[in-house]
Design a protein around this nucleic acid. Sequence first.
DNA 1: ACCTGAACACCGTTCAAGT
DNA 2: ACCTGAACACCGTTCAAGT
Lengths: 226, 226
Amino acid sequence: MVKKARSTQRREEALSRESIIDASIELLDGSGEGGLTFRTLSERLATGPGAIYWHIASKSDLLTAACDAVVARTMEARVVDARPKAAIRALALGMFDAIDAHPWVGSALTRAPGQLPMVRILEGIGQQVRALGVPDEEQWATVSALLNYILGVGGQNAANGQLAQTQGTDRSDFLEAVATEWSRLDPDEYPFARSVAGQLRAHDDRMDFLAGIDLILRGIGSPRRR
Amino acid sequence: MVKKARSTQRREEALSRESIIDASIELLDGSGEGGLTFRTLSERLATGPGAIYWHIASKSDLLTAACDAVVARTMEARVVDARPKAAIRALALGMFDAIDAHPWVGSALTRAPGQLPMVRILEGIGQQVRALGVPDEEQWATVSALLNYILGVGGQNAANGQLAQTQGTDRSDFLEAVATEWSRLDPDEYPFARSVAGQLRAHDDRMDFLAGIDLILRGIGSPRRR
DNA sequence: ACCTGAACACCGTTCAAGT
DNA sequence: ACCTGAACACCGTTCAAGT
């Protein structure tokens, strides 16, 4: 983590929505959700807190915009596979990696329902679900199952990263601590959680994530049963 | 000279962790996440903000405890069906309804990964997944797919409710506004989002949620394909 | 042991005043 | 049009002092 050594310089470029968003992303990446403050941000931009409000409506606006920048970049970078299921897999994995690199995106996504960042993901999934030949009236449920799963994992990942950062430990230390806690639970009341504590320690987040996507994709292909 | 303000009713029972949690839940239900403050809470309990710290470690501790109380109640109330898939469905629906009634539970759940409230849900799902005969090494991925989907929907629901409350509108007004926004998107870039905007307006959250659960359950029963 | 309430170190946001 | 920075109305948390 390198700290910018340019102390109190004057801005040579004018403030702009874009430069504010870029600086916010750096702050969020560097020190988590708690690191983004109108004061730290304005210090970084060598201006006063009030100046930011000329370009940005509110903090939640700022967070959504920063989130959208990351999501847009992620969706643009992806190579779309011709096979719909492979394309969905790739999209999901791309989002997983983006949230892993920028944990705050996970929670920002949850806090802006129906907003542009989420619509980008929805659209990407939706086009592939259509290509898969899912009937019109089932498309929404199918897409929302995939989307909500991605959001769920993303939020969880974000929280893990956030907590680890707050406590000064890293992610694997944190998972280790959770595994230990789980293995100490009452065996009669929590047999499953105890039995799975070991797997929690050893598991590969990314592979497990993909396994979940595959499980849902498998459901799409399967005939419906009553 | 004003004497001791007997008028503002003095607490007759001693403060306790439980009474604090109960008051917190009332506050959260009544005015959302923003409504829970150490000041509003201590006012409600006719005490000073500092007193609460004798029983509770921090605000996040308080939020997790309040969340756990709701989750525990929900899990206890459920009737466990003998058929594992029906039992999973019932559990999921129970959580959906609980989050619907207490939107703040959705986000509290996301902010306390690996903590007791989540373990309760995990355990409930895990026991049924076992009963379903899913092989040991696939149990974790299966349970986490279901759990993360529930968390994703829950978080989304919480955010909707939260936003609607902030804006003074209700949930259906909010969905209406989102649908209108989506139907105005560029048809070339967002064909799917546009086409689905109508369904968004008409849809039944609860039924769609269940459709997602069923989709995942269907995946469990299906053979794995390459 | 438990409670009180002032005080501390922060927040997001506003706004009169400057250029 | 854009920026400044003090001021406002809050936060969570601490802590000396009380009972």
